[in-house]
Design a protein around this nucleic acid. Structure first.
Length: 224
DNA sequence: CTACCGATATTCT
DNA sequence: GAATATCGGTAGA
């Protein structure tokens, strides 16, 4: 087998390419959205913001905040590793990881450079490109196209090739199309066993695209 | 509602 | 080398 010594080139996902070859993910958020704030502050502001990639737009309906070295549930808890180092860098970048060998999950890096803070994007409602999203999620009801972090990335065509790419942020380019006031609820994060008591999950009330809560199997309440 | 389990990169010991 | 994991689909009670 003749293999090249070069780094294998991943097939780029659809979307505009950046100079580094990765694809662009954009975010249209509310006025005043500032990813340099800590994730706990940013997370609720992201509800209603519109994330775009791979020909699909979706309105975020469920997110979770993860802090860094102070948050036992964060991948950054034990300090930087090759996987988590992106979270320790400047805000406005994208952290993608592979979960359980099967699903990708996408986070937006927040907080000042040198701190680790990120918001996991858990669910959204598709507002444009629904045909593309359906083709990536065959047989799934529209309301569930981006329900759950793994399904959200699948609907958008986000995978590890997006890890470390810069987010195109457009604050003030809102976001919600209807003017209905949104009720935001918060509660414990999904599938988290350490620091399971922290109510750092935020979602829109009465929103059918929000994923079901699942408590982690193993619970360690010694780190509340 | 709960339980199981696939499948694998990354981290931990 | 072993354990873990920001999960999701399915089966069964």
């Amino acid at each position: 087998m003749v293999a090249t010594d070069h780094v294998p080139t991943r097939r780029p996902a659809r979307g505009r390419a950046q100079p580094d070859g990765r694809t662009v993910i954009t975010l249209a958020g509310p006025p005043g959205l500032d990813l340099a704030r800590r994730s706990l502050e940013v997370a609720p502001l992201l509800l209603g913001a519109v994330l775009s990639h791979g020909g699909v737009d979706l309105e975020l309906t469920e997110v979770e905040a993860y802090e860094g070295v102070d948050d036992p549930a964060s991948h950054a808890w034990r300090g930087p590793t090759p996987r988590s180092s992106i979270m320790f860098g400047p805000p406005g970048f994208v952290y993608v990881y592979l979960s359980h060998g099967l699903h990708h999950a996408v986070n937006l890096v927040c907080g000042p450079d040198g701190t680790a803070s990120a918001v996991l994007l858990r669910a959204g409602r598709v507002t444009a490109g629904i045909g593309v999203a359906r083709s990536r999620r065959l047989g799934v009801a529209d309301v569930a196209l981006a329900r759950g972090p793994g399904n959200l990335t699948r609907a958008l065509g986000i995978d590890l090739a997006c890890n470390g790419s810069r987010l195109g942020v457009h604050p003030g380019a809102t976001a919600r199309q209807d003017r209905r006031p949104v009720t935001i609820r918060s509660g414990p994060r999904v599938g988290v066993s350490r620091a399971a008591g922290r109510p750092w999950r935020f979602w829109m009330a009465d929103e059918p695209s929000v994923s079901a809560y699942r408590r982690a199997v193993r619970i360690d309440e010694s780190h509340p």
